[in-house]
Design a protein around this nucleic acid. Structure first.
Lengths: 230, 230
DNA sequence: CATAATTATTGTCAGTCTGACGGTAATGCG
DNA sequence: CGCATTACCGTCAGACTGACAATAATTATG
């Protein structure tokens, strides 16, 4: 029953897919093929369709625009953005989702997928729409997630070393951590990681023990950043 | 430029206004005057209008439906809810906002405001739409906010005692806290509260010193609940 | 007016967690 | 075999927390 003074609008879902590549936090971006902002970098995303759930739309758009299968990803809602002027195409409210994934090569096949690529977060200024703002919020959320959950393992492959995991924290937080204290904390937290028994040989030096993600999802007590933001 | 296969929908903003009354956490509800769910309790809220911001819509709806002036409130977005079947009137995505306020009498004057009232959260099952779900998420968010921010003071009036503040924590968290440890923690946290110099006489017993909210917003270190949820 | 009852506030003490940092272990290379 | 390199273990002091004892300031009561 449409009524007067009820605003009808479109709802978009935008995705912030983060990974750690080359010791740098990177975000999945696409190059826009259509106007507005044609040719400019943007977060992958698109419009909600009939009968579709918000996460459903997120998974579909992720697949359409990057070829990735988001069904295994931990998609987490960040926030809804509803500024009236945020999109020149008209009134569009966007819901942002965040996911963290290991450093995998992007599928090159597929239609629109060819325009998808990784961009270092530090150099990702100038995205289309209000995507700079969305990205900043999502990265802050990711940093907080590392404090209170075991999601850092989502940045790693199936098997990883404690050093790999520490590197994730250092890259995402942008600060060095003491390896000895970090080891103590991770190994002392029940269910954070469990040893696989395997080892990995570095180019030079002592081999490192391999671990996989444990069953725990929450860190209690958390790993708090010393330098708290404003 | 409307296109095929772009879904047009309405966007609602729903409000979870919490307070502590009679040592119980209560939520502001209205009785629905229109179908669907006519006569049933629901969270205050309504549709986004043209040119309106999300928080703008939240403040306006709060005023229209309860007579409260939300401009002084700390309105915080909880989440967007987009299940296709969540509203029988059609496709409506809702963005929920959370606020905490002191125990003030509701304005009785005003048009729709007469139907607004406080409901204990523990007895708030059976709300219209998916508002039970929204309420549960918002309450959990409020509990977390008490751990990491100074927002508990938002539940108190301008002047309050440490006991008042502790009562807020106990009611919102649903667990008893040691008064001595709580005092130490609050007074030891820079900028949480500052003394007014005044005192309040209880019916019987030693008078309590009065405080007002300090300048800090974040608690570092936080006041973690011992019993962490799943 | 003394004493009890009640509420507020300060203090103590052991256990835990963290940050800082020294030392040891296991590999490859010359 | 010694050396560089990376991984890992141990120690210690300070901070914070949870549990509990003791004191302070008021009203009620005999």
């Amino acid at each position: 029953m449409p009524e007067r003074d009820h605003l009808y609008l479109r709802l978009a879902v935008d995705l912030v897919i983060l990974t750690v590549r080359d010791d740098v936090l990177q975000v999945l971006t696409i190059t826009r093929a259509n106007k507005p902002f044609r040719g400019q970098a943007a977060l992958p995303g698109g419009f909600l369709r009939e009968g579709e759930d918000l996460v459903g739309a997120a998974v579909r758009e992720l697949h359409e625009e990057t070829g990735l299968d988001g069904r295994g990803l931990h998609l987490e809602q960040v926030e809804a953005y509803g500024d009236p002027d945020r999109d020149p195409r008209g009134r569009i409210v966007s819901v942002a989702y965040l996911a963290m994934m290991p450093n995998l090569p992007l599928p090159t096949a597929g239609s629109d997928a060819s325009t998808a690529g990784w961009t270092p977060v530090a150099q990702a200024a100038g995205l289309a729409f209000d995507h700079d703002h969305i990205l900043a919020d999502a990265v802050e959320r990711a940093r907080t997630r590392l404090e209170f959950t075991t999601l850092a393992t989502a940045f790693c492959g199936a098997d990883f070393t404690i050093g790999d995991l520490r590197n994730v924290y250092e890259v995402v937080w942008g600060q060095r951590l003491d390896p000895r204290n970090f080891n103590r904390k991770v190994l002392g937290t029940e269910g954070f990681v469990e040893p696989t028994g395997g080892k990995r040989m570095p180019e030079v030096g002592r081999p490192a023990a391999l671990y996989r993600a444990g069953g725990a999802t929450r860190l209690n007590p958390p790993i708090l950043r010393t330098d708290r933001h404003g």
